[in-house]
Computed example of a mutant assay.
Amino acid sequence: MTKTAPLQTAIRAAALAAAITALPALAMAMPKVGDKVGNPTEAKAALEAAGCMTPEFEAEDGKIEAKCHDAAKKLYEVYIDAKTGTVAKVKEND
Protein backbone atom coordinates (compact mmCIF):
# COMPACT_ATOMS: atom_id res chain seq x y z
CA MET A 1 0.00 0.00 0.00
CA THR A 2 1.36 3.42 -0.91
CA LYS A 3 1.40 6.58 1.16
CA THR A 4 -1.31 8.03 -1.10
CA ALA A 5 -3.85 5.35 -0.13
CA PRO A 6 -5.14 7.23 2.98
CA LEU A 7 -5.47 10.40 0.89
CA GLN A 8 -7.35 8.55 -1.85
CA THR A 9 -9.66 7.02 0.75
CA ALA A 10 -10.32 10.45 2.28
CA ILE A 11 -11.02 11.93 -1.16
CA ARG A 12 -13.42 9.09 -1.99
CA ALA A 13 -15.18 9.50 1.34
CA ALA A 14 -15.49 13.26 0.84
CA ALA A 15 -16.82 12.77 -2.69
CA LEU A 16 -19.36 10.22 -1.48
CA ALA A 17 -20.46 12.51 1.35
CA ALA A 18 -20.83 15.45 -1.05
CA ALA A 19 -22.85 13.37 -3.50
CA ILE A 20 -25.13 12.08 -0.78
CA THR A 21 -25.80 15.47 0.79
CA ALA A 22 -26.58 16.92 -2.63
CA LEU A 23 -29.45 14.49 -3.17
CA PRO A 24 -32.91 14.92 -1.70
CA ALA A 25 -33.54 12.60 1.23
CA LEU A 26 -36.17 10.56 -0.60
CA ALA A 27 -33.87 9.95 -3.56
CA MET A 28 -31.45 8.04 -1.32
CA ALA A 29 -33.52 4.87 -1.38
CA MET A 30 -30.77 2.37 -2.22
CA PRO A 31 -27.35 2.25 -3.84
CA LYS A 32 -27.31 1.86 -7.62
CA VAL A 33 -25.41 -0.56 -9.84
CA GLY A 34 -22.01 0.99 -10.53
CA ASP A 35 -21.78 2.88 -7.21
CA LYS A 36 -18.37 2.35 -5.60
CA VAL A 37 -18.82 1.36 -1.96
CA GLY A 38 -15.50 -0.37 -1.21
CA ASN A 39 -14.73 -3.38 0.95
CA PRO A 40 -17.10 -4.49 3.76
CA THR A 41 -15.50 -2.10 6.27
CA GLU A 42 -15.93 0.91 3.96
CA ALA A 43 -19.16 -0.42 2.43
CA LYS A 44 -21.11 -0.49 5.70
CA ALA A 45 -20.88 3.30 6.07
CA ALA A 46 -21.37 3.95 2.34
CA LEU A 47 -24.43 1.68 2.10
CA GLU A 48 -26.03 3.13 5.24
CA ALA A 49 -25.43 6.64 3.90
CA ALA A 50 -27.21 5.60 0.68
CA GLY A 51 -30.23 4.26 2.58
CA CYS A 52 -29.28 0.57 2.92
CA MET A 53 -29.73 0.20 6.67
CA THR A 54 -27.99 -2.35 8.93
CA PRO A 55 -26.16 -4.25 6.18
CA GLU A 56 -24.97 -7.77 6.92
CA PHE A 57 -22.28 -9.20 4.67
CA GLU A 58 -21.47 -12.66 3.33
CA ALA A 59 -19.50 -14.04 0.39
CA GLU A 60 -21.58 -15.37 -2.50
CA ASP A 61 -20.41 -16.50 -5.95
CA GLY A 62 -17.24 -14.38 -5.91
CA LYS A 63 -19.09 -11.28 -4.78
CA ILE A 64 -19.84 -9.71 -1.42
CA GLU A 65 -23.55 -9.84 -0.62
CA ALA A 66 -24.98 -7.18 1.68
CA LYS A 67 -28.44 -7.83 3.08
CA CYS A 68 -30.18 -4.69 4.30
CA HIS A 69 -33.43 -2.73 4.38
CA ASP A 70 -34.56 0.74 3.40
CA ALA A 71 -36.42 3.28 5.56
CA ALA A 72 -39.72 1.53 4.75
CA LYS A 73 -38.22 -1.80 5.99
CA LYS A 74 -38.24 -3.29 2.46
CA LEU A 75 -35.49 -5.92 2.23
CA TYR A 76 -32.71 -5.80 -0.37
CA GLU A 77 -29.63 -7.76 -1.38
CA VAL A 78 -26.78 -5.63 -2.71
CA TYR A 79 -24.04 -7.54 -4.56
CA ILE A 80 -20.59 -5.91 -4.51
CA ASP A 81 -17.69 -6.89 -6.77
CA ALA A 82 -15.02 -8.04 -4.30
CA LYS A 83 -12.14 -6.76 -6.47
CA THR A 84 -13.42 -3.28 -7.31
CA GLY A 85 -15.82 -2.52 -4.46
CA THR A 86 -18.47 -1.55 -7.02
CA VAL A 87 -22.14 -2.43 -6.70
CA ALA A 88 -22.83 -5.14 -9.31
CA LYS A 89 -26.50 -5.82 -8.64
CA VAL A 90 -29.34 -4.68 -6.34
CA LYS A 91 -32.12 -7.17 -5.75
CA GLU A 92 -35.37 -6.37 -3.96
CA ASN A 93 -36.66 -9.24 -1.80
CA ASP A 94 -40.33 -10.08 -1.62
Rank of each mutant, 00 (worst) to 15 (best):
A13E: 14
C52Y: 00
I20Y: 02
M28D: 04
P55N: 06
D35L: 01
A66Q: 04
L16D: 14
P40S: 09
G51I: 01
P24N: 12
L7K: 15
A45Q: 13
L47K: 02
A27N: 11
I11Y: 12
A45M: 02
M53A: 13
P31K: 00
G51W: 00
L16H: 14
A18D: 14
E42Y: 00
A45D: 13
F57V: 05
Q8N: 08
P55V: 06
T21I: 11
L26P: 01
D61F: 10
A17Q: 14
K73I: 06
A5F: 07
E42T: 10
Q8I: 11
G51L: 00
A43V: 02
T9W: 05
T21C: 07
G62N: 11
I20Q: 13
A50S: 09
A72N: 12
T2I: 06
L26Y: 09
H69T: 10
I64G: 03
A45F: 05
A46F: 08
A71G: 02
F57N: 07
A27G: 13
A10N: 10
K74A: 08
A50E: 11
G38N: 05
C68W: 01
K67I: 04
A25V: 06
K3E: 12
G34H: 05
F57P: 02
L26T: 12
A19S: 15
F57W: 11
T21M: 11
A59I: 04
E65D: 10
A50F: 03
A59L: 10
A18W: 07
T21V: 15
K63M: 14
E60R: 13
A59F: 05
K44T: 15
T2A: 13
